[in-house]
């Protein structure tokens, strides 16, 4: 059905993974991955049979690539979440916002394009104390989200809506992903949970939700091959509380007062340990949980539960520490035996 699929952001993990996955599907003719940087050894392996073209989507030349390759499906994965890996916040905004604008302009001028799949994020909803417990696709954020990534996401979705109006013949699928976790995923959030002592906000224990990388890829894959126009939340059903997630990872939470956290975040960023932005602090205060009913009904597919996705991440990263369930269980048995002994 799909003859030529063009995937942006193909030098990064998710972009390369979906490009490689689509290339190995016999229902897909040809897969072209484009990115501004050359793929690393790891992402080259993920790309598999997909062709890689070194091209900059921020540049109008992307239009020429689209005209030459005549893709019928464009998968826009070049949406960057962390400034550190994009080379600073300015570069990140450039990739996200200017890149999306140029890509959409090119798509608009390319008649062969009949489908657009965009990787978005639940960050679009922001996070505040006045939000309902679960966001549906229709929920309007009550406050304009703080932080670069969330603002970029809001802008990107705005451009995508504009594109959909100008090219009503194109099937547009916007996937709002919860934070990725998985056995191999390496994101700001997974690095956060790998810290020996994990800073949290004092007096707050937000609900957190994740999506497993493999489930995210499955949803992307189906978006390309099937017909699912619209906006969809993609997240693992159920929630964990942040403190619960930290304990499951065998880590110790370190509550820091709200004001102190900005300092801690700045220090962490400075030391290069992890980079933390304001929207992530809002996330640590209020959490963000989405309703996945529409995904289930429309795709007939539901990602694995948040807790199962997170457990896979713990196993994959070998996070088990002194506080692993086995060790705690052993301590529990010892104490129980000791009390029984003492009471005799």
């Amino acid at each position: 059905m799909s003859n030529v699929v063009l995937v942006t952001g193909a030098s990064r993990y998710m972009g390369a993974a979906i490009a490689g996955r689509l290339a190995s599907d016999e229902r897909v003719g040809h897969v072209i991955g484009v990115d501004t940087t050359m793929p690393s050894d790891e992402t080259t392996a993920l790309l598999g049979r997909a062709e890689f073209i070194h091209a900059d989507i921020r540049h109008p030349l992307i239009g020429r690539i689209l005209a030459q390759t005549e893709p019928d499906t464009v998968v826009h994965m070049a949406v960057v979440a962390s400034p550190a890996r994009a080379g600073g916040r300015a570069a990140m905004k450039e990739v996200n916002v200017i890149g999306t604008m140029q890509l959409l302009a090119a798509c608009q001028k390319t008649p062969s394009v009949s489908k657009l799949v965009v990787k978005s994020s639940v960050a679009a909803y922001g996070a505040s104390s006045r939000d309902p417990a679960l966001f549906t696709e229709e929920t309007e954020p009550r406050a304009m989200p703080r932080g670069g990534y969330a603002k970029d996401i809001v802008e990107i979705e705005g451009y995508v809506r504009g594109f959909a109006r100008r090219r009503p013949d194109v099937t547009v699928t916007v996937l709002r992903f919860a934070p990725f976790v998985g056995a191999r995923a390496n994101t700001t959030l997974t690095r956060y949970f790998s810290l020996p002592v994990v800073p949290t906000v004092f007096g707050r224990d937000p609900r957190v939700q994740f999506v497993h990388v493999d489930d995210a890829l499955e949803v992307l894959h189906r978006s390309v091959l099937e017909h699912h126009p619209g906006v969809f939340n993609v997240a693992g059903p159920g929630v964990l509380s942040l403190s619960q997630a930290i304990r499951r990872a065998g880590r110790v939470p370190l509550p820091v007062p709200d004001v102190g956290l900005s300092v801690v975040a700045a220090l962490a960023r400075h030391s290069g340990l992890i980079d933390f932005s304001l929207d992530q602090i809002d996330f640590l205060v209020h959490g963000r949980v989405v309703d996945t009913t529409r995904l289930k009904e429309e795709f007939g597919y539901l990602p694995r539960r948040t807790v199962d996705a997170f457990d896979d991440f713990i196993r994959g990263h070998d996070l088990a520490s002194v506080l692993s369930p086995e060790n705690v269980k052993a301590v529990e048995r010892t104490i129980l035996e000791w009390i029984r002994h003492a009471r005799r």
Binding site: A133, Q244, A245
Partner: peptide, 12 residues
């Protein structure tokens, strides 16, 4: 509680 092996619902 220490190992986080309990369930909370979507509302927390």
């Amino acid at each position: 509680r220490i190992t986080g092996e309990y369930e909370i619902d979507e509302f927390g």
